[in-house]
Structures are given as structure tokens and as C-alpha cells.
Design a protein around this nucleic acid. Structure first.
Lengths: 338, 338
DNA sequence: CCGGATCGTCGAAGCGCTTCGATGATTTCG
DNA sequence: CGAAATCATCGAAGCGCTTCGACGATCCGG
């Protein structure tokens, strides 16, 4: 492997000049710059990452902590991950992949040993134990999610309260009066992943604001759970004309059960899903949905990390506004008067 | 951050002694070792990764190249990825996540800049352009998959030929004589991902060996594709009593279509899937399946990389034997005589 | 009781890069 | 036209670690 000295020799300049050509931190004449560039290309020179990190205390690597197999749906995790990698690359950074199961120790390990410049953490819980560890690190961190007390740590996420409101507004506009929420599994609530609660809060508030009759119900991610959930909903709120489903795992099963029940979507019952676009599109029927913009959120997380590293200002909490896209699963209720 | 010098001072020894305690490359007396350990713990010392890499030319990082959104199913990719991360951690390595779309350049970048000790590459194609680049790197690489000419590069994968044979043997044993293969989408074949071909080869060979009447058909991953595929199969091989499905994307839809068609699984038609265990289990009916052991393959890839790094011997191509697990989707055909 | 192993530790060099201060050379301007 | 400012480049120090050779100290056998 060629070193910076080889390049310097080949270009007839000093190593520091090569370094300055590379970093642009000092003006270098066009002529010299060209010679150096040619030498770099000819020798196939790539700066040694470790040496660079040692000298500059910058690694150009971001840590990404992903849940291993939580109740978060796998495709969504992948979408976040690829978004983070892609965005990182466009900022000339690489991504070190950590799993949540390494816990606090993993974060401290990579941070203390200076493997990364910043950390992006997915799937944070309301009272996540990792938060205090993150606050102590010299590297900044960005959460995807929103804990109870985000003080001192940047957070980005979808605005789930607004998402719930958006879904209800759409249904109310069509004339629905009785709407049920099929929520995440009880495990998600128990675990304290706040997006579930935030959605619930938004749902309840919007329901009141719009004067709707609503009921909310968590849903276990299996056939039995779905059946039980739908049965409970019917029992608690007879004459429901619309469902908001905030649970990708069961989305498909809900549709199947409705169908098995002889209820046509959207003729007999409307369905609005909260899920990534492509999930909404690969269902038997293209679903009206509020997008979970994993790509945007991931990109924003990286962007935020970069600003933090550059000492630029950031908004500590950034909640992206939701977008509802109407597709084929929502329509006016069969009888406009609920 | 504490440095090795701080530790040395605190323990009353020289920095090199601390280093030797850490690496175990030279004998250090119990007494000294303890003092050093205490100092390390007290100061919360973590060696600087860059400095270490620079001095030792070892990064303790593995690159993992994942397909971004190929026709490979996302959960499988995630399973490989988490398996690789977990296994790497157990060997004291971290994982740098690269996406396939960076192509050859990405591999060269991380290798030339000495960011990683070895590379693990998923989703290799028959004639993958990245192969020649990989061969030139000073770091070893391990492929998950099997290209046409794996010369000089270690490969690990499931033995897909054997997997096909296993599926057919199971069905033949039950007395099925007419079996159809619902294969991956044409795009997968076109792309030259060899697992599809290997499965097909194994399927055809075993079919002949067992004296079965079979037909094989790729399948587009949408409702229309599934319908077309099933219709074609019925047209080409009337009286089919069993399906082997080597396409996770459509698995669920195949079951739905069969059901819509009034064909009961397994009473009217048996189904054997080639997919990860948990996919087989989360279907409406637990499926008899040949496991895709992503976890094992990922672990083996890491293990192989480690052996390569340690200069230990390896088998250049390692194909894991398949395991068929009988569940509820296979049974004897309605009439034992096909 | 002495010469040669063996053991435990140290000091120094060096890994490849960045960065700071210094230094000529050139330009600018009063 | 000379002092001051600016420009382009260089040299050297230093980032934090590993590793090699060296060196006393302890051990062994004869």
C-alpha cells in the first residue's frame, strides 16, 4: 500500500502538502494540486484510516445501533439501516453496525475506543438505560425515536401524534363516526417504545376533537390475537365503520379476517394503515396509509449527526410531519350517519 | 480519555508491559498483571482503535456487504446480518456495513484504507464483477453464495441442490408422483444469483432419480404472477399433488390462491417451502420446510474469515447440508397412485 | 558456585497521518 | 520603492499503540 510519503515523493512535494491537497485546509496552487492528484491516482493511494483517526481524532464512521429482533418489523429496520448507510456515505462516512443486545457496554466500547464519531440509536425506549451512558460519551448521539427525557440528546422521528390525527381526520372527512384503533402488541407498550403511546395520545385527542366514538386495542401478532382484537372491538363499539391499524405485523391478517368475516374493504369497513409505503402497496388491496418515512428519518438522523459534528446548530427534537396517502382501502361509510 | 501511558503510570510499569498484559503476547507476572488490570479498570481505559490499527495493522473490523433491495427477501438479509454481527462480536470484531450498490469501489475503498481485516459479501452473482476486485485485495474475503468460479475466495452457503433433493425425497416418500416447483422470480435467474440455478439443478436431478413427473416455473412476486404461475403449472402438469416453493416473497400468496381455489393444504395438495424456519412458522399453516439456516451460514462465514486471518486452514467452499422439518403442510396425496 | 537458560520488564522505534509554526516568494499599497 | 500582508509550501512534532531487541534477575544443572 502506498503511503502519503510515496505520494509526496512521486509528486515532488512534502507529505504535508499532500495532506492539505486532500483536506483542503490550506490553499495549494492549482499546479501542485494537479501533480499531487496525479500521483495519488497513479499509486492508487488511499489514506490509512487508522493513521488518519489517530492524527485527526476523526474516524469518519458512524455507529448505528439496531434492534436485533424486537417487535419492530424487520423491513422497517432494514429501511432505516439502508437509509442511514446511504446518507452516511453521501457525507463521506461509513457505518459500524451494532446490535441493541450489546446494550450500554457496546456503546461505551465503540465510543471509548474512538471507533466512531457519533452514534445513531434506533428503538429507544421511554426510559432507556442507555441514555445516561450516551450523555456521558464525548461523541454526540442521535436517537431515532423519542424517550421521555431527551435532554441533551438529539431525536428524530415521525410525529406519531400528528399521524394519528391525520388518519382520523381523513376518516372523519369521509363521514365515519365510529373508528377503532388496532394498535401494536401489548409487548410494545410494555417495553415503553414511545411511538406507540404517542400515537395513542394523538388518536385519543383527535378523536375528541373530531367528536368521534372510538375504541383502541392492542393486538398480538398472531391469528388468535387478531381475532380476539377484532372481536373485542366489535363488542365494545358495535357498528364500527373504520379501522386504523398501527401494527404492520398484523396488517395482512386483519385484512384476511375481515374478508373471512364477509366484510368488504372499503365498502363495509375502511382501513387506514400506519406503515411504510411499500408495505401499504404490497397488500392484497393498496391501502390508504400514513407513511412511515424510514428513509427520511434515517437521512435526517445522519444529517443531524453531521451538524453536531460540525458544531452547527440543530433542533434537539425533530418530528417529521406525517403524510396520508389515499389509496383503495378507505371510502365513505355504508350509511353516512353513524 | 485515558491512554496506555496513563495506565502504565498508574500501575507503575512501562507502556509496553500494559500492552503485553492486554495482548498476552509475552508472559507477565501475575502480580503485575493484576496491578495493570486494576489501573485499566480504574481509569476506564479502552485502547484507541486507530492507534492500535496503525501499530498492529489489525482493525478488528469485518466488512459486511449487503444487497440493498434486491429480490432477496429482507428478513433473510437481516438474519444474515445479525448472525454476522453476533458471530463477529464473539470473535472480538465489529462490523462495518456496506451496501452492494457501492459496488467494487466500496470494497476497494474500505480495503485500501485499511478499515477492515476481511470482507464478507452477500448476494454474489454467477459472474460477479466484484470478484476480481476482491482477489486483488490484501484482505481475505468470504462469500455468502457461490459464483461460477470461486477460485481463490472462500464461499459458504446452504447446499441448495441437496435442499431440492431433500424436498422431493420427502414428497416422494409420501407417494407424490407429480410435483411442481414454484421458483424465484425471473429477475433472480436473470441476475445470475446461483442459488436459484443450483436449486433447479438439484430439483431436476432428484426428480429424475426418483422417477417423478415434475415441472418448474419461476414466479413473479405479485398476485398476478402467482396466479399465472399456478395456472401454468396446472396446464403443464395436470393432477399435481405437491408444490415445492422456493420463493419466500410469494409463499403467502400461493397459499391464499390455493385456498381461494378450494384446494386444501395438505389434504388436496402438499406444500414444501424453502425458507427460514420462522417464515415457515408464521404462515397461516405451519409449513413443512427446508430451512435456510441464515444464522449458521452467517456464523460460518465469520468463522471462516477468522481462520483466514489466523492463517489456519479452511475449506474453500463450504455448503451446509439442508434440514427438512415436517410440519403441517405435507401429507400423502389424496390418491396414492399418481 | 558458576555459566547458560529462562523469565519479566523496559526503552525506543515506528506505524501513516494531521497540524502548527516557520519560511521564502510574491503581491499589495501608501 | 520598501514595509506589510498574503500565498504556497515545508519540516517537525505528535497522535496512542505494538513490537523488537536488550537487560537485569532468577533459576537450573553439573
Amino acid at each position: 500500500m502506498a503511503t502519503i510519503n510515496d505520494v509526496a515523493r512521486a509528486a515532488g512535494v512534502s507529505p504535508s502538502t499532500v495532506s492539505y491537497v486532500l483536506s483542503g485546509r490550506r490553499p495549494i496552487s492549482e499546479r501542485t494540486r494537479e501533480r499531487v492528484r496525479a500521483a495519488i491516482a497513479e499509486l492508487g493511494f488511499h489514506p490509512h484510516a487508522g493513521a488518519r483517526a489517530l492524527a485527526s481524532s476523526r474516524t469518519n464512521v458512524l455507529a448505528l445501533v439496531v434492534p436485533l429482533r424486537a417487535d419492530v418489523s424487520v423491513p422497517v429496520i432494514m429501511q432505516f439501516a439502508t437509509a442511514v448507510v446511504t446518507a452516511s456515505r453521501s457525507h463521506n462516512h461509513d457505518v459500524l453496525l451494532l446490535t441493541k443486545d450489546e446494550g450500554t457496554a457496546g456503546l461505551e466500547r465503540v465510543a471509548h475506543s474512538t471507533m466512531v464519531d457519533a452514534l445513531i440509536v434506533m428503538d429507544v425506549e421511554r426510559d432507556d438505560v442507555r441514555l445516561t451512558a450516551l450523555r456521558k460519551l464525548k461523541q454526540p448521539s442521535v436517537l431515532i425515536g423519542l424517550p421521555e427525557d431527551p435532554a441533551g440528546i438529539a431525536c428524530v422521528d415521525l410525529d406519531f401524534e400528528a399521524a394519528a390525527a391525520e388518519a382520523l381526520r381523513h376518516l372523519a372527512w369521509y363521514g365515519h363516526r365510529r373508528v377503532a384503533l388496532v394498535g401494536p402488541s401489548p409487548a410494545v407498550y410494555r417495553r415503553g417504545t414511545t411511538y406507540a403511546e404517542r400515537f395513542l395520545t394523538g388518536f385519543t385527542a383527535a378523536s375528541a376533537g373530531l367528536g368521534l366514538e372510538t375504541v383502541t386495542h392492542p393486538c398480538e401478532p398472531d391469528r388468535a390475537g387478531v381475532r380476539a382484537c377484532l372481536a373485542d372491538i366489535d363488542a365494545q363499539l358495535p357498528g364500527v365503520t373504520a379501522l386504523v391499524v398501527h401494527n404492520e405485523e398484523v396488517l395482512r391478517m386483519v385484512l384476511e379476517e375481515l374478508r373471512a368475516d364477509g366484510r368488504r374493504v372499503p365498502a363495509d369497513i375502511s382501513v387506514v394503515a400506519i406503515c411504510p409505503r411499500d408495505v401499504a402497496l404490497t397488500m392484497p388491496l393498496p391501502l390508504t396509509s400514513v407513511d412511515i418515512p424510514a428513509h427520511d428519518v434515517g437521512g435526517l438522523a445522519v444529517e443531524t449527526a453531521m451538524r453536531l459534528l460540525d458544531g452547527r446548530s440543530i433542533e434537539p427534537v425533530r418530528l417529521l410531519p406525517p403524510t396520508l396517502v389515499e389509496r383503495e382501502s378507505s371510502a365513505p361509510p355504508a350509511t353516512a350517519a353513524g
